[in-house]
Design a protein around this nucleic acid. Structure first.
Lengths: 194, 194
DNA sequence: AAAAATGTGTCAACCTTGCTGACCAAACAG
DNA sequence: CTGTTTGGTCAGCAAGGTTGACACATTTTT
């Protein structure tokens, strides 16, 4: 994913949508008010984006942290604990607090690595997949509504801006996530579930 | 509200891809992948978006909750405690824990309302404005980078999608925030700082 | 073979920021 | 006067982060 060469200082390109303001689009573009609006949008948007899953999770005695584990393990079956830590950006102890119950309750499976037997390769059990899918469905409908209302051009713009909001590390991790399922060796040897 | 049975003994009763046609399946897969990407983007993007202020706040012994108060009070000088509670979507007690120290440390000013003297109209002190500005600058640069890289069309799209991700309540609140500052009566009568 | 580094697990303590329930006081509205 | 609204506060609980220290198996290096 190379950097897209879109014009930021070229005055020729106007947003396709008629904003209420007509004057000096260019000047307005970087005005303080626009950036404060971005803060608001991210706060409200992210909060409501996570509200659906949160409610469901609460009924199961889980939280957002569990969802994140289910999500990223589902996205990368066979991921190691270390890789997951890198993606989540939390400490080993924090992860343990959510991962251990997930393994004990048969949502996540741990298998010892084949090439390196110190590793614990994580994957979702059928039960875990079912829950992840339920959680996903909630967000899927929510996001689809937003996508439909906004239109495809807006969606592409949304993605570009969100990528820009990510740091270099996160971008690298996202690329790996988008990659075509790498080592493929989830169901390995010894199972280590409690 | 779908109350979910915990016992998911049956592995994913319905295959998520209901369409029997190959092409349809592919389309559905792409759609799902797109939506999962949205999840990733929001997770990474929001995390890195808040990382800058978080670091600064930590040095002052504050957290994200303090920032939110500073942000919304700065956005709406003269806001009442009740309105702020509505925007943040937290309980009075949770707000008190961050608001009280902010008032005691002279970041936020409380003035009794003119029309209703039970109300405490909140506004930023110069000290509070200075801190809010520092926090804002960090996010401003971060967002500006993303906006510049993405371009104006993408930014407009981003805004549309983020609005779509908000619930009806949040949209109404955002509209009020974007409005031209209505009551305008911040520096009222009695000061109530500790 | 011995030593070092790596991957993972775990105990213990602490912080922030949500939550609930209960109760109080001031001010407004009838 | 009575009742409601707005706000403050005390006390306790939980989730989910943090750090530090240590244990253990395994792999790599010397």
């Amino acid at each position: 994913m190379p950097a897209m060469p879109d014009q930021t200082d070229k005055p020729g390109a106007e947003p396709q949508v008629g904003a209420p303001v007509g004057a000096g689009r260019n000047l307005l573009f970087l005005r303080e008010e626009e950036l404060r609006l971005a803060q608001d949008l991210l706060f409200f948007g992210y909060r409501d984006f996570t509200a659906g899953p949160d409610k469901l999770l609460a009924e199961l005695g889980m939280g957002r942290a569990h969802h994140r584990v289910l999500h990223f393990v589902g996205r990368r079956p066979g991921i190691t604990v270390g890789e997951l830590l890198g993606i989540l950006g939390i400490t080993k102890q924090s992860l343990a607090r959510v991962l251990t119950p997930l393994v004990e309750q048969d949502y996540v499976l741990q298998a010892t690595g084949r090439s390196d037997r110190r590793q614990r390769l994580l994957s979702l059990t059928p039960k875990g997949e079912a829950l992840e899918r339920q959680l996903f469905e909630r967000q899927r409908e929510w996001v689809m509504r937003a996508y439909r209302e906004a239109g495809p051009v807006a969606v592409e713009g949304f993605r570009r801006v969100m990528r820009g909001l990510m740091g270099a590390e996160a971008r690298a991790q996202l690329e790996r996530l988008e990659a075509p399922a790498p080592p493929r060796a989830a169901a390995a040897s010894l199972v280590r579930a409690g």
